[in-house]
Design a binder for these strands. Structure first.
Length: 193
DNA sequence: CGTTGGATTGGCT
DNA sequence: GCCAATCCAACGC
């Protein structure tokens, strides 16, 4: 159970497959924070927009490791974003988790987000990390293990998924590797479709 | 060793 | 809609 075999495919295949799956963090006191993934983007070593494009470096090492690990990167001097590593070991690819729909622990997430709530709680990649308390220390974490797990769910029907270009990238901007759940209020920038 | 700019957010115009 | 905030990996000299 919780077999990560579905992650062994190219990130552009795994990205829509992860929509609907659940991210769960268990806090030291046993409290659980959880959310349903509603928006993802695919990145691959063949793709100029990907951190792994220029090869394996200390920073991108995790992207080339086994599928099902968490790749966390720091950006814009203040934000963390997290990805699920995909594909075979040695291949640099991952799926960015851009937004989730909060399920459990939204009160704690609101605290982590300095009071922001509602749709502003987790509708962006850095917001998801802030709400769940994910930072550089989680880079490389195996998502099959406590205290941060990814629970794969059944794939969604294709007609519930919208595919668009990725947000905020300049290289390879035509690659339509962003996926989100249609009409979900927690999707970041839903107008761009 | 100095420079550059980014898979973002939030606050202000 | 525009832009500052603020770090650091990658790259050029």
């Amino acid at each position: 159970m919780n077999d990560f075999a579905p992650l062994l495919y190219p990130s552009a295949v795994v990205a829509p497959r992860l929509l609907g799956s659940i991210l769960i963090r268990t806090l030291p006191d046993g409290t659980e924070l959880s959310g349903r993934i509603v928006e993802t983007e695919a990145y691959d070593q063949s793709d100029a927009a990907s951190h792994s494009y220029k090869g394996r470096t200390p920073r991108t090492d995790v992207m080339f490791g086994p599928a099902g690990r968490l790749y966390v990167y720091f950006t814009y001097g203040m934000h963390y974003c997290c990805n699920v590593v995909t594909g075979p070991e040695g291949h640099g690819s991952a799926v960015l988790i851009r937004a989730v729909e909060p399920l459990e622990g939204s009160d704690i997430m609101t605290n982590n987000r300095h009071g922001r709530g509602g749709y502003e709680l987790t509708n962006g990649p850095a917001k998801v990390c802030q709400a769940f308390g994910i930072d550089r220390a989680w880079n490389g974490h195996d998502l099959r293990e406590q205290p941060l797990r990814l629970i794969l769910t059944q794939p969604l029907d294709a007609d519930r998924i919208v595919q668009t270009v990725r947000i905020g990238i300049r290289q390879a901007k035509d690659m339509p590797w962003r996926f989100f759940i249609r009409d979900n209020p927690y999707v970041s920038r839903p107008r761009i479709a």
